[in-house]
Write a protein that binds this DNA or RNA. Structure first.
Ligand SMILES: [Zn+2]
Ligand SMILES: [Zn+2]
Ligand SMILES: [Zn+2]
Ligand SMILES: [Zn+2]
Lengths: 142, 142
DNA sequence: CTGAGAATGAGAATCAGACTCATTCTTGAT
DNA sequence: ATCAAGAATGAGTCTGATTCTCATTCTCAG
């Protein structure tokens, strides 16, 4: 899906002083093909279809990629963290969660982003990242 | 702090068909005195100072109050859910989390709320609740 | 006052995520 | 190409939050 992202991600990881590793490379490749967030369990399962990868390695990899701002963490309140690749231009989406069927719907909204930027600036808070999640019922469920 | 809220909360719980219980009443009383969110562990400790309350009871109570929209759940990404009372007029605040010192700073922003309402409406999504969290460094830490 | 049903308490069971350490892989240097 | 040092990985263990179970206690309508 996004070949450029996976190349860039590997380059940034190396520049940060890390050796290359099969598990992390496979994870980067997997995330580059996704349009929305995956949980660690989902990542582990999908990678395992090709070559088994230890859970600890998945956690280590997402932690590193997240600390380098290469992926964003999505928390929809079910106690399971999800991760998805971040765009270089800081463009990103947020999520609607249907509490009835559990579907995760991504959306983008410039007006919302502006409002968030304004809030951080007003309070003198150096915002590095933000999370927005809407809960409710989707069109099919209501 | 907000006597009206605790009375209203108990009335709504009863109307929903639940008997009264000492543990839940104590929890409601505690939350009515708070300005911002508390974790289950914090609730348990503070209640225990007066009369021991089982952890399971705290979890049951916050689950019920949350399902009745009497409290809102705040998830700042540290794996610990926090809860705070909700206002009747649906007014509420969101949070800034300092990733350096961990402080939780509440804020209100009408413009942000409008942007969120607009998004849900545009996508035909019946929004019941939403969560916004900004991460970064606070004034003292940056 | 009583009984049915609800709430509570204590502890076990789950589950996500963090940690440990022995083994394997990368990579710069020889 | 070879080697050693340091990094990454895998398998399993450990922790901490949340959920589940069930016996006991409490609430409240009758
Ligand atoms: Zn997404
Ligand atoms: Zn955003
Ligand atoms: Zn708050
Ligand atoms: Zn809001």
């Amino acid at each position: 899906m996004d070949r450029h992202w996976s190349e860039e991600a590997r380059a940034i990881v190396r520049r940060a002083g890390h050796n290359r590793g099969a598990a992390r490379d496979a994870l980067i490749e997997l995330l580059s093909d996704q349009d929305c967030a995956l949980s660690v369990a989902e990542i582990e399962t999908r990678l395992g279809a090709q070559r088994p990868v230890a859970r600890a390695s998945v956690y280590r990899a997402v932690e590193l990629l997240h600390s380098l701002h290469l992926i964003t963490r999505v928390d929809i309140g079910d106690g399971v963290a999800r991760y998805e690749r971040a765009a270089y231009d800081h463009s990103h989406h947020h999520h609607l969660v249907c509490d009835s069927c559990g579907v995760l719907i991504p959306f983008e909204d410039p007006g919302l982003e502006q409002a968030i930027d304004r809030v951080g600036a007003q309070l003198g808070f150096a915002t590095t990242e933000h999370e927005v999640t809407l809960h409710g019922t989707c069109v099919r469920c209501n």
